[in-house]
Structures are given as C-alpha cells and as structure tokens.
Amino acid sequence: MTIRLIIVDDDPLVRAGLTFMLGGAEDLEIVGEAADGREVPELVERLAPDVVLMDIRMPHVDGLTATERLRALPGAPEVVVLTTFHADEQVLRALRAGAAGFVLKDTPPAEIVAAVRRVAAGDPVLSPAVTRQLMTHVAGEQDRPGRREESRRAAITARLAELAVREREVAVAVGKGRSNAEIAAELYMSVPTVKTHVSRVLAKLDLNNRVQIALLVHEAGLLDEEA
C-alpha cells in the first residue's frame, strides 16, 4: 500500500530535503507541500493524505494550531510533528492535540521513513527516552499545581471514571509504554481483546491515539497509584 504524505514547513530547503529523502521510498508518495499551517485544511481535503509531516514554527498558522484544527476533523490523517526539540511544552501540546508523535529534523532519513510507516500503520512514534522526558514534564506540572492544573486533573479523573475495570487496567498498561502483546501477557488476555479494549478506551475518552491515553494516565496520577 502506498502511503500518501504531505510536508508542511516554512523553510523551502527543509521541504526539498524531506522530499528528496522520503521520495526514494517505494511505498511513500509525496502528494503535496505547504509553507504554512493555514494551507493545510485545503490541501488535506483535496489530496487526502495518510500522514502529514508538520513543522511547529511557522509565521501565520503554526503547526500546533494546524494540528489541533486538523485532528478535530472526521477522518483526519495522522500528524507527525517536525521539531528541533526533544521535549517541551509545544511538543506536549501537539501530542495532546492528537499528533501521533514527532521526529527531530536531524533524524536520519531511514528513521524518518520508518516513523511515517509506523504512524500510517497506527503506531505512535515516541521513543522510550522521549516518553520519559514528556512524563517528567507532566509530573512537573503536577508538582506545581495551580487552579488551572487542578481543574484539569479533576476533569481527567472524571473522564477516566467512565472506564470499566478492565479498560482502566489496559489504559494504565498503555501509560507504562506496553505493547499490545505485552499487555496481553501481563493481563492474561488475547491480543485481539487488548485491541478491543484500547479501541473502547479511545472512544470513551474521545482520544485519537495511544500517546494521548498515556498522557492522560500520567496526568491523572494512575501510575503513582500502581507504585
């Protein structure tokens, strides 16, 4: 299956470099490019990509806003954020908005190709090291709770209360970074059953992907309860 890809970056040299790198993969097709987030909705509607590589910093509509708007649409393509940072508040916001992960701009070409393939297949692109950094950031927010953070955590706790016991267990395992096979072994269920529970968790919590489940679990402090 050919993966249709759109590249969004305000630097024409970056777009040209990514097109050159990714265009050599037989299963990837660069169907469009954009220099700003405001161009994305029309491109996506017209070209129907499977994945959008999205830069964060752009002059008019940045990649974070563009990602939030795009992922709110039905049938939206997956979004991989392009960044020069390993982890910061902007990347966290992108993941909360529904991005399937992110890649650094200096990532080797083969790894970027692999990331696009993984995201197209429904797997998030987030290394264990980066996950730890992001969760540390989330923990830091919890350690400095303001009224806004407390309100957010209360809302998250209320949402998680909608889950059945087994769904909650699966959500916590996702938060630990477990794969479906690992969750199946840990909770004594089949892999198809795990997939069903993950799908139900996503639907009940109105989330886009496993990364968002992991963030929500960490923000709710469920992993602290497991310790």
Rank of each mutant, 00 (worst) to 15 (best):
Q133V: 05
I156L: 11
G17R: 06
T157E: 14
D123N: 12
I56S: 00
A94R: 02
D11Q: 14
E26M: 06
D27G: 03
T84S: 14
S199I: 05
T19H: 03
L5F: 02
Q212W: 02
M54F: 06
Q212E: 10
P77T: 00
L187S: 05
A35K: 07
G24K: 13
L207P: 04
P108H: 03
V191Q: 12
R132K: 12
A129D: 15
D36K: 08
R152D: 06
I112F: 07
A66E: 04
V81F: 05
Q142C: 11
M135R: 14
E182L: 09
T67Q: 00
R178I: 09
A34G: 09
E149V: 14
R93S: 11
L73I: 04
P41A: 02
P108C: 08
R144M: 14
E45K: 13
R57Q: 11
D62G: 04
R117L: 09
I3M: 00
S151K: 11
F85E: 13
L202E: 04
R132G: 08
L215W: 09
R153Q: 15
A139M: 11
R46Q: 11
H197L: 12
A214Y: 06
E162W: 09
G146D: 15
E149C: 04
V174W: 00
N180Q: 13
L134C: 10
A76I: 09
A121E: 14
A114I: 13
S199W: 01
G24H: 11
P77C: 02
V130E: 11
L82E: 05
M189P: 06
H86A: 15
A100D: 04
E45W: 08
T19F: 00
L18A: 02
L126V: 14
L187I: 15
R159A: 09
R200A: 10
P128M: 07
R71F: 05
L207K: 06
G177C: 12
H197Y: 15
S151A: 13
A48K: 14
D88M: 10
I56A: 01
E39P: 08
T196G: 13
L223E: 10
V8M: 01
D9E: 03
T2P: 15
K176E: 14
I156G: 02
R152C: 06
E39G: 05
A185S: 15
P145L: 10
D143P: 10
P41R: 02
L207V: 12
E26I: 00
R15G: 00
L187M: 13
Q142P: 03
P124K: 06
G23F: 01
P77V: 01
I7A: 02
T67H: 03
S151W: 05
V8T: 03
E89I: 13
I7F: 01
M54N: 03
A181I: 11
T136D: 15
S179N: 12
G75V: 13
L92N: 07
L163A: 02
E182G: 12
L216P: 03
R117T: 11
R168E: 10
T84F: 01
R147Y: 10
A25I: 10
G98M: 07
A214P: 08
A34M: 03
R4K: 09
A155R: 14
Q212K: 05
